[in-house]
Design a protein around this nucleic acid. Structure first.
Lengths: 214, 214, 214, 214
DNA sequence: GATGAATGAGGATTCATTCAT
DNA sequence: TATGAATGAATCCTCATTCAT
């Protein structure tokens, strides 16, 4: 009867049910397949229109078991956000490792390339539009975590000196990379021109900002 | 008995019911207040979670009348997209008029300022995430219309000579301006630094691109 | 504000609203066209599924005017039953006139032929299945009236002597004629054999009964 | 997940959902009690006026369970028609077994007696007047099946020789037996005279037809 | 008198969640 | 622990009827 990952907001009752981490490997993979299915269905139909029974059907989990892992539909959204945030954080940590002493253009390319590589996950904020309540807040917090990691990358690339303007740059950079991903989605239409243009913007921005502050 | 604004897709039956334009002035203002209410509720709760009865309650329209104007929840999304696209188009036409012979920086500022000014409407694409079916397609089409208008602005600003790269620039610029609007939403947190940084990116991009091609 | 055709049951409040007889010729024909339309729609969709607005649309009567003539949907059923009963009664009166001194077979044929001739009206009892409350009762009363007229026919045909068994024969004969009409509906399938067989039954019955009692 | 009794018309998509057969005994009896309740309500109020919630209330089935078994109101009509057709067919098969070498009058009485005995089920065609779509078609098909069984009875009674006229007689006989049942409903009024008269017609018809062809 | 917009009670249906097996 | 039948609140939507114009 262990509940983990309970939320800790200042503004929320602490006992809102969240998902339950399975003990055994089989459970772990079951949970992941549920999350994959749920993400697919949320993406297709939106959070509000998705039904627990379709998630249970398509993930081949009986509705009873589904509810054992995820006591509410919102809890699936929560778990999805959490899983995503973990992946994203790992992703940025990996970049941070490689960022040391990269040139501005090199760093821009590192950012863009890994954005392109990571693109397969749909935009969760978008997909979970109406998972009422917290996912939104949670997403915001995740964003902050990512900002910190971007600051870390910038710091690493410029020789370890953290500069205050990096804090302003981080959200902008993150959004620029979202443009890159959106551009990649249109690749089929314009044969990659959009992506190169987006990449050019990132390069331009970093070149300009890192030089002018260096 | 009059149905207007029926969709015209190549790939869809032409008679999907959309919303009905009211005959009288009273109806017109009623429709607008419904749309405002619906937009608020969609924004708060997401399209899927919003209910027709809450829309009817909060807009003080009887549920029957609501359904007279908007026979389905989707039709409200459609109307919202349409209304938004009209406003956006007017907005860009106004900019295009002022764009003649503006410097790169001047044009950037014109873009940014009117983006900030227009910001009050939430991002419809986001809000209507799961209004199934066409709103998505429709949004895409609207985007194309806006791209054309941006190309027009760029053309006007650079002395009337249309250049092929403007077509690649338009979607990027539009997204950069979305960053500006998102930054403005965070004004309370960072006292406007995000907005200036975003503005700087737009200036940088236009300065770079218009120079290097001129 | 004159209301006519108000019901007079022992078991019902006397002021249930029924239909209103129009004063002018134009109104009269309007009412008839409404009734024709309503009958068609009731036949197609059943009383319960029929809607006042479809009746108003297809009869080209504004919904307001429709309600001026028929204050409830039930009142249309009532009027239909009434109109039908008048027609049926006239029909049987005509037969009664011709019945004098007809042979048993001749009378049978007269019955059958006029049943076939009158067949165009759908079976109201069937069509109005769920016009709650009175139409059913009313239909039963109409049936009794028709029974009386059949008795009259039988009496006339056998020289004016009323016989008690005619009262038993009447409902049977009426139902036999309904078989004739049903058989006629299947004409397309069996090329009229069903009708001749049904006619044979009527002849057989009358021949048997009128002989054996004469 | 198992769907049975799916319709098989030539002119219809084959996967229109009909009712679902329950797995367990408890469900089976539940379904039957739903059908009994529904039949009562349809009879009282007509198909169109009947409501799912009244069916659920009076059969003490929660509305959700009702919908698990019968996903639409029409599906209840379908199931009712099906159950009725099964019963009717069994009924006629039983008669066919007893029909061997019965006299014309004996056969007539066998027909009449079992019609009287089976009378409890209301006339479904009438009750389901406006269950749109197939129940009508289905009823017609059931009728044909019964015709075949009547032909079998006639054949058995006349020594096993099938005669072409039996095919014409069958629908007439079926309708005559419906008269018998209708007459039985009026027993309270006329103390059974109507039934005897109806029986007499059946006897007369069979005596006449079987003799004249034998 | 005619019109059709407005009303809201009421109906069919869905689906998150529970719980007996 | 796993299953899926059962539950009923809540949703979308319709339509008979009224009433302002």
């Amino acid at each position: 009867m262990q509940r983990i990952k309970t939320k800790h907001h200042e503004d929320e009752a602490a006992d809102i049910p969240t998902w339950r981490e399975p003990q055994r490997a089989r459970g772990r993979s079951r949970v992941n397949s549920i999350l994959d299915t749920a993400l697919a269905i949320f993406t297709e139909q939106g959070f509000g229109a998705a039904t627990m029974s379709e998630i249970s059907d398509r993930s081949k989990t009986s509705i009873g078991s589904l509810y054992r892992f995820f006591p509410t539909k919102e809890s699936i959204a929560d778990a999805l956000v959490y899983r995503h945030s973990v992946r994203v954080e790992e992703h940025w940590k990996r970049i941070a490792l490689r960022a040391r002493d990269l040139s501005a253009t090199g760093l821009a390319d590192a950012f863009v390339d890994s954005a392109l590589e990571a693109r397969r996950d749909p935009n969760l904020a978008f997909v979970l539009a109406d998972a009422r309540g917290d996912p939104a807040a949670r997403q915001r917090r995740n964003r902050l975590a990512v900002h910190a990691l971007i600051v870390e990358c910038l710091t690493a690339a410029t020789g370890g000196e953290p500069r205050p303007e990096y804090i302003v740059m981080a959200p902008i950079l993150l959004r620029l990379l979202e443009i890159v991903m959106a551009a990649a989605d249109e690749k089929q239409t314009d044969d990659g021109q959009a992506v190169s243009e987006a990449r050019a913007v990132v390069r331009l921005y970093l070149a300009h900002r890192l030089q002018s502050t260096g």
